[in-house]
Amino acid sequence: METFIKFVALALILALALFIAVVAGDDGPWYFAWLVGTTMIVLIAAAGAVLLETQSPSGETGSEF
């Protein structure tokens, strides 16, 4: 049951995201760009930190961190 509710909730979020994307994509291309771009900026910055955790000690100073 809980899984089902989670599934429905995620489906609703997806539908909302699609709706925003369609409206913004048509009429507010720059707003749409901001949404996509900001998400990308956050994810890449976060990925950079996660990468730092996995970088091997062979990196010059990697082991020190």
């Binding site: 720059w30 760009a33 771009g37 900026i41 910055a45 976060a46 990925a47 950079g48 930190a49 961190f65």
Partner: peptide, 29 residues
């Protein structure tokens, strides 16, 4: 605070690099 600073620096550098690219593009727009 080297462990702290290295991580903050990494996040900020990537964050800033893409943002600067975007800000220049959008300035042109």
């Amino acid at each position: 605070h080297r462990a702290f600073a290295a991580r903050s620096f990494r996040i900020a550098a990537l964050f800033g690099l893409i943002s600067t690219l975007a800000v220049i593009t959008l300035g042109d727009a």
